[in-house]
């Protein structure tokens, strides 16, 4: 699961759905991996508008890799766009847990694929 996806998802339980404080899910006991891919400037411009920046900062702090630049700086600087690409697209969570900051429900990531399936009392 790429860090871009981590920035797009939140807790899916009945009580948390649609609530802003059920985001971002906190990564815990994770194994990260890097996977090189081509930078697509059109796509990066498209998602730059869709990223929740405070959420991204929180996630990267939780992963112990704090962001060193702001959104405004990225919009001005091609090199930083490349760095953001490497964070969002090239960094994946291979194994680990994602914990809801609101209800503490735990989602699992196995072989790079997250599961957002829910037990019956949470749907």
């Amino acid at each position: 699961m790429k860090l871009l996806t981590l920035n797009f998802v939140q807790c899916a339980t009945r009580d948390c759905a649609g609530r802003q404080d059920a985001f971002p899910l906190a990564p815990q006991n994770v194994q990260l991996a890097a996977q090189e891919t081509d930078l697509d400037p059109d796509f990066m411009a498209n998602i730059l508008a869709k990223i929740d920046w405070p959420g991204l900062e929180t996630s990267l702090n939780q992963l112990g890799r704090p962001l060193t630049f702001t959104k405004e700086q990225v919009e001005q600087d091609q090199n930083l766009l490349k760095e953001l690409h490497s964070i969002l697209i090239e960094t994946t969570i291979q194994e680990g847990e994602l914990v809801c900051p609101r209800c503490s429900h735990i989602y699992h990531v196995k072989d790079g694929i997250a599961s957002f399936l829910l037990p019956p009392h949470l749907v």
Binding site: V9, R14, T37, K50, D52, I113
Partner: peptide, 23 residues
């Protein structure tokens, strides 16, 4: 086409995990 592939995950359509501002 690897550079176009973001992610797949398991989820139930009646409980999608996307935050509401993702379009």
């Amino acid at each position: 086409l690897t550079s176009k592939y973001i992610d797949v995950f398991s989820s139930d359509f009646t409980h999608p995990p996307f935050r509401s501002t993702v379009q």
